[in-house]
C-alpha cells in the first residue's frame, strides 16, 4: 500500500493507505478525528469541510494520496487544545448557530475560510452567498448567518485570534 505523510492539526502523521482512501476517511478512520462528518455522496453538503494548506476543501472529494505532504486543519485543531475556543466557535455558541451539531464543524471551517477570503466585515448577503457549499437542515441558516457575522468581527478583534492553519 502506498504511504501518505501529512501534517494534521500541527502533528506529523504517516500511514499506509488503500489508494481509494478519501481524506475524510483518513481523518475519521485512521486518525479517529470524527469531528469531520459526511452528509452526502455528491460533494454538496459541506459537513466534511476542512482546511487544506489554509483553504477550505471538501475532504469527501479529495484523495488523501493527492495531498501528500500537505497540511490539514480540522475542527479539532481549530483552537489550541487547552486554549480558548476560536472566535468563530464561540460565535456559533453565542448566537445559537447550531442545533443538532452535525453540519457545525463544516460550517465553522467554511466560516473561517470565508473570513480569510472576504474579510471581517461580512454582510448578510455575502454570507448567504458564500454558504453555497454548506447545508444545514435545522437552523434555517438564520442564526448561522448571525454567528458568522459576529465571528468575523471577533476574528478582527485579535482576542484568541489565530490563523486556522
Amino acid at each position: 500500500m502506498p504511504t501518505v505523510s501529512l501534517t494534521v492539526n500541527g502533528k506529523a502523521v504517516t500511514a499506509d493507505v488503500d489508494p481509494r482512501t478519501l481524506l475524510v476517511q483518513f481523518l475519521r478512520e485512521h486518525l479517529r478525528l470524527t469531528g469531520t462528518h459526511v452528509g452526502c455522496d455528491t460533494s454538496q453538503c459541506g459537513a466534511c469541510v476542512v482546511h487544506l494548506d489554509g483553504k477550505a476543501v471538501k475532504s469527501c472529494t479529495t484523495l488523501v494520496l493527492s495531498i501528500n505532504g500537505s497540511s490539514v486543519t480540522t475542527i479539532e485543531g481549530l483552537a489550541d487544545a487547552n486554549g480558548p475556543l476560536h472566535p468563530m466557535q464561540e460565535a456559533f455558541r453565542q448566537n445559537h448557530g447550531l442545533q443538532c451539531g452535525y453540519c457545525t464543524p463544516g460550517m465553522i471551517m467554511a466560516a473561517v475560510d470565508m473570513v480569510n477570503r472576504k474579510g471581517n466585515d461580512l454582510d448578510d448577503h455575502t454570507i448567504r452567498k458564500e454558504l453555497d457549499g454548506n447545508l444545514c437542515r435545522c437552523t434555517g441558516y438564520h442564526n448561522i448567518v448571525k454567528s458568522i457575522a459576529a465571528g468575523a468581527r471577533a476574528m478582527a478583534g485579535g482576542a484568541g485570534q489565530q490563523a486556522a492553519e
Partner: peptide, 9 residues
C-alpha cells in the same frame, strides 16, 4: 461554479 470549497480544488 460549485461553491467556495469546490472552487479551491
Amino acid at each position: 461554479i460549485g461553491d467556495p470549497h469546490v472552487r479551491h480544488r
